[in-house]
Design a protein around this nucleic acid. Sequence first.
DNA 1: CTAGGATCCTGTCAGC
DNA 2: TGCTGACAGGATCCTA
Length: 289
Amino acid sequence: MWYNGVMPELPEVETIKRGLSKFIMNKKLTQTDILCEKSFIGTPITGNVKNIRRFGKALIIDFDNQKSLMIHLRMTGQLIYDGAKKRYAAGHPSENFVASLPNKQTRVVLHFDDGILYFNDQRKFGFIKALPTKEVENDAFIKKLAPEPWTMPKDEFYKKLQHHSKSCIKATILDQTIICGLGNIYADEALFKSHIHPSRKCATITRKESDLLLKSACEVMDSSIDSGGSTMATYVKADGTRGDYLEKFAQVFRREGKECPYCGTKIVKIRVAGRGTHICPHCQELKND
DNA sequence: CTAGGATCCTGTCAGC
DNA sequence: TGCTGACAGGATCCTA
């Protein structure tokens, strides 16, 4: 029931899942170097990679000996695989993608028989956790995750918004236990596409808007997976210049001062739910009556 | 129970 | 130049 391979899926982690699979499937993990204690939970494991899965923003690597690694990149995590001939890099974009590794931000080093997987994480919010495969779905974080936009029933979504009537819509859709997969970028993009102001109280969201928001969330993530995949590849080839995959699909995110693609009004950046938030003040009217 | 704010951590950038 | 505060593609914990 957990949305593997059914529809286009959650952008970054899905892209990493697909990309990394090509490099480490059936490869043997032989050794783990923990450079930051906080970044690795449990006891290091060895084994052959049998499967790679994704639960929301968490990546799961299953081994052939009933053991698994759960990886969450949080804000600044990166996975960089140095293979015999090629490097595959994904996650929070930075110069690390093309830097010599390990470096100051490398937290865990996983040695495979034909390459090395580096887990870099500037802010140390992310982690790798070793656990028995059968425990993955019982993990506290995994267990709480709600359905993703593609499989979320419209009725259920609207009902949840009603239930959180006093909360603002942006905070609500960022909550992974309400709807799973949206991050700060996709929340802004989906709300823009639906012409909904992020500060609107959930109680003011109509059924029609609720359905539209769900649809927009799917479209925004689909679009991101499309451009994200190609950009990851572009990034690896790059010579240190920053990746630009945001520019390929973002209509409002980090576009403050630029024109709204619908009406030409200048995009502004505000603060909602404690997060930087980008809106078109004309298309996304704040009506909280 | 919900809602909102602080917090974990490092690095960068704008403004003095 | 050096300092300071704000802020960052996430999620949890604490408080009211």
